[in-house]
Amino acid sequence: MASSPAEYVTHHLEHWASGKDEAFISTTAWHIDTLVVSLVLGIFFLTLFRMAAVRATSGVPGKLQNFVEILVDFVDGAVKDAFHGPRGFLAPLALTIFVWTFLWNCMDLIPVDLLPLTAKHLFGLEYFRVVPSADMSATFALSLTVFALIIVYSFKGKGAIGFAKEYLTHPFGKWMMPANVILNTVELLAKPMSLALRLFGNLYAGELIFILIALLPWWAQFIPGMGWAIFHILVVTLQAFIFMTLTIVYISMAYEHH
């Protein structure tokens, strides 16, 4: 290791970006690594599931179909439990969120230096971050889409008048309108924030721990690395599941009258 520990860590947290931009919220720099990795994972997910869908038979299912059906059934069950409207859009949305974020999170289990070094030696890329969910851009992209859907479903479920009425008079009644508005605005904005930051925080922290373990001498890496990886299998699945479930819950809350 040529660089100092601090340099090693900061190097690992740098994006392969379209331009150099030091701002916390960049308006110009594309995070190309996040886009590429998430796109590849998403296409992998869709190809696999599309294959299963094309070959789907109502007779004895194959192994792939069985696996896909378990996921579909699980997601459909989760949506059915929380949401009592038409599931034609929401269930595929939940499936996409679950599998896609799960695959994002799984990238955390690949040894931290493997893909960056490969990218460096094959393509000459200086920086390469492999975990899309450890990038706020990716998690906020999901949560802002969900936020937009919350608004859409609020109007769909309650109508413009019903939504406005609830926004202005709930929970304290019509004489406390300003308090209601403040509370509801905070509540509404907290949803996408908490969704995105929860996923990002968990995976960013997980990635950071793996980077720190990689700083240990080689003979001391095995036990903490394995322990953290095993624990991370839980985190990976759980965070994907939580993101999906909360999406369903938020949308069903928006859709239904209180």
Binding site: S26, S38, L93
Partner: peptide, 23 residues
């Protein structure tokens, strides 16, 4: 650690396309 607005927008478009495909 940085959030990038273009990335967010790009990811949202990709996400929408994926949802549409799944659906």
């Amino acid at each position: 650690m940085q959030a990038s607005i273009p990335s967010i927008v790009g990811q949202m478009i990709v996400f929408g396309a994926f949802i549409w495909f799944t659906m």
